[in-house]
Design a protein around this nucleic acid. Sequence first.
DNA 1: CGCGCGCTTGAGTTAATTCAAGTTTCGTGG
DNA 2: CCACGAAACTTGAATTAACTCAAGCGCGCG
Lengths: 250, 250
Amino acid sequence: MADMEHKLVGPCTKCRHLPDLLKQLGQAATASTESAASPLAAPLDILSEALPSVTRQVQAGQAIALEGDANGHVYGVLSGLVRCFRVTADGRRHIGRFAGPGSFIGLGMLGALRHSAEAVERSQLLVFRTASVENALETNSAVRAAVLRSMAEELIERERAEMRLARMSSDQRVADFLLEMCRDEEPICLITMTRADIGDHLGVTLETVSRALHHLVSHGLIELLDARHVAITNRRGLQDFVECDNHCFG
Amino acid sequence: MADMEHKLVGPCTKCRHLPDLLKQLGQAATASTESAASPLAAPLDILSEALPSVTRQVQAGQAIALEGDANGHVYGVLSGLVRCFRVTADGRRHIGRFAGPGSFIGLGMLGALRHSAEAVERSQLLVFRTASVENALETNSAVRAAVLRSMAEELIERERAEMRLARMSSDQRVADFLLEMCRDEEPICLITMTRADIGDHLGVTLETVSRALHHLVSHGLIELLDARHVAITNRRGLQDFVECDNHCFG
DNA sequence: CGCGCGCTTGAGTTAATTCAAGTTTCGTGG
DNA sequence: CCACGAAACTTGAATTAACTCAAGCGCGCG
């Protein structure tokens, strides 16, 4: 308790007590403002302007869609986080991706949804009709570009995940996952999913995720403020570790 | 040239000596003719009719494109097999996919190619200019549908690969891989890639691939006629094994 | 304040790897 | 056409990374 105190403050409740650590890591909060002026409008913005949609609010843990659904909806994530997963015949779960703000679920689904979707945390969704998206694909050049771009981005995301699964040690998988989740400069990152979620995404057990996180801590690459708050204290080191040969420490 | 001649007779040189096994497995050679009447024209056919292209012949082992290429080409595989791979900083290779007839390489590449490509066996390619594909996307509805369909199919392929990597034992990975490679009814299948290729695709070592194949043999699911010729003697059993809980035999 | 879920940590086990021969297959040149 | 060498494949033995099982802790929620 007492030793936690100096760690607590920032974007969220916990982080508010940590201005020193923030400064020490030297990331200006103002740096993020420039990203607002994006060169290309975000695909989700384009779709929401061009097409009719309804917003939907879902609570943490709530189901959004089920694998096999052919109800003809495409979802855009406005805020929060959604896990997209499948369950195997023997009951194990694989989380194919975590869809954060700006991501789509159900694009190019070719008939039926291939993953179930649940909110990891409270999330806001934009719901489109698949038919209207497909229609706009024919008539609206901006929508076309947005959809193609999103699909290509999803492909890139999957390729990264594949590389992790095929070629990395558990420690490296967790390290790479952290880098993917905490893409912005902000060094303190709130991990809203559980260890089991992370494990089911990375193809390892939840115990292994826990151990890997602590390995990263003990090598000075990250700090765990509490179970859900990770400070990336050495981003460069993390990146090197992911790309490096010796997969696991000591 | 002359050595091509004898290949036109049957599926392959080796298989000609195995008519009894073929009959025994009871797959009528005529069954495959119906697939010629496809409901939708194949994406590659559509592109080749709508766009200018040049054909390119590549020998086994020959490089087709390099990761990072921004030379603006999209490749369609007419015949043969192409491995699409990356090499990590420490020199290990990951084969993201094997592109067979009908597959595209470089669609939706968003700037630069994300994988190098090499022919596994002698292959025929159709080479398009990326710019002309992108142009047709705007003006040609059939091309649009074909490209979207191909991208969606690639996504499905990757998802299957991901599931394998994340959730299957080495025996199951190899079993599922065989099912993916030998999709047609034809029970005897020529595997043109090496064990190392398969291993680099499935995220296991080449020794493990070899062992897994022999496990499958000893459980009566497949037969190895020689190193490269696999007979799927129990397709249903293979499928069950892939979906089943007990990942590995004995 | 207590209960439950999520997280951590340890000990023993196992699947897959690494290393190391040995064998087969294939292509090439004599 | 055969012999040779290289590449691919197989198989075994020892090692190790990750898993399973199990216990204990801590935080948050009712």
